[in-house]
Nucleic acid binder design. Structure first.
Lengths: 246, 246
DNA sequence: GCAAATTAAATGTCAGACTTTTAGAAACGG
DNA sequence: CCGTTTCTAAAAGTCTGACATTTAATTTGC
């Protein structure tokens, strides 16, 4: 792990990189304990704060965890799907909000990914996941549901669909994308009429999954993608018109 | 941004979280300069090392960048697709290597995602991207190509296919998945016979994209997924048999 | 008016002390 | 001999103060 450091660049970055490389390459296996901070100081011949800043960088990426106390120290962390999922959501959310990705692009990506797991979900979905979808559809039909609650339920519905594919790698990638889009979706006002239409499509999707009819699931997801995009465009257009008159 | 800190938990984590929330919520816009370290010390009433460790955590996630000198400081970073892409690859790679995701699961996810952008790529691929694919196919046909070089070319081919969808959100998500799988693919020995078969499928895919024939692209990707999975399984089985005899 | 030197502000690094947490060892008592 | 309590040591977390380095703005000198 020891590498010569270039004093002209930031030391804590170099140390973090060296340790990260050791972890990624497998030289430091999961749950292996790193040397203590003092030992790392001697190894790299730097001050303790420098070592600590390097370790914090790694901790921020969930590559290590630290534990205080006598047998404590820094340990190589087994990256959990939950950790990866959280990072994915943060990254995707920031990417969407900071780069002015237009709604169409985000929507297209989301539904393209979701359609990718439709056939798998049709094959493997459990009765439990179907029940979750039905429950969310029922909730979506309730009057007086706020736009936020509506969107949250929408996410839960699609999350169940994705989980139905029973592929954790797909779930982690996709659920991140779906949830990252929620802030964008929250900006849309869903009228009672548009809600009814979406609920209809959701019902069709659930029915098709029930019947393990992959083609119909795919078709209805495509319809939903098209409808959502059109709806968003009209809502944004209307909002822009309002702003001009005011 | 100022929030009361709980002295029982780690201060640097709380400070990092507070600033991160401010960034994600948009309270701190892109390129906004954070208060200097000394000012943050006073705001949160902690020592400078604590503030610095918090900032390093954020820097590790590309949420901020720091600049030295008179007009320096920490600035809210505009997350670039390149940054997001790099993080995605690291996360996905670790997830696959640390969680004993079996090859079938990873492969299934990868091709499911890739098939998701096949129809878009068929519609939008540029002549340039087609040329890249043809070039990689040509390279793959050369004799004496190492397994690593073969896999790298394979990644480049699929990357061009994904980029053909002309959706940056899809590119970032998918290219990460494709590249994260490369270490797993590198573990497979590709015989001349299997290479020929894959090259044939690649050619079919390129031809179908050329003709903007989405259905055939999808079909050939499915074939490729199936073939790759079978090939991997047989390679792993053969390796296991060898180990038993030794 | 332009170039060089100075200054000031900011991050990066270091050293040392202290605090807190924690597991294990030692002492104690039944 | 066993269980409980106390002590101890190791380690991360925090604080303070100092110095180094980088960089832009300011001042100075010509």
């Amino acid at each position: 792990m020891k590498t010569q450091l270039d004093p002209s660049a930031d030391l804590s970055i170099q140390i973090a990189t060296a340790i990260r490389d050791a972890i990624i390459s497998g030289a430091l296996p999961v749950d292996e304990r790193l040397p203590s901070e003092s030992e790392l100081c001697e190894t790299f011949e730097v001050g303790r704060s420098t070592v600590r800043e390097a370790l914090k960088r790694l901790a921020a990426q969930s590559l290590i965890r630290t534990q205080r106390g006598a047998t404590g120290g820094a340990f190589v962390n087994r990256l959990s799907y939950a950790d990866a999922h959280a990072q994915q959501i943060t990254t995707s959310t920031l990417l969407l909000s900071m780069n002015a990705v237009n709604f169409e692009t985000a929507c297209e990506a989301r539904f393209a990914l979701e359609r990718a797991c439709a056939p798998l979900s049709a094959k493997r979905r459990t009765p439990d996941q179907l029940a979750t979808m039905r429950a969310e559809i029922h909730r979506q039909g309730q009057t007086g549901l706020s736009d936020e609650a509506w969107c949250a339920s929408d996410v839960a519905f699609h999350r169940a669909l994705v989980d139905g594919a029973a592929n954790p790698v797909l779930s982690y990638q996709l659920a991140g994308a779906v949830e990252a889009m929620q802030p964008l979706m929250n900006m849309i006002t869903f009228t009672a009429r548009s809600r009814d239409h979406i609920i209809g499509l959701h019902t069709d999707i659930a029915d098709a999954l029930d019947a393990r009819d992959a083609a119909t699931v795919d078709q209805k997801l495509a319809d939903l993608a098209h409808y959502t995009t059109q709806l968003a465009l009209s809502v944004f257009a209307a909002r822009q018109a309002t702003q001009k008159t005011s």
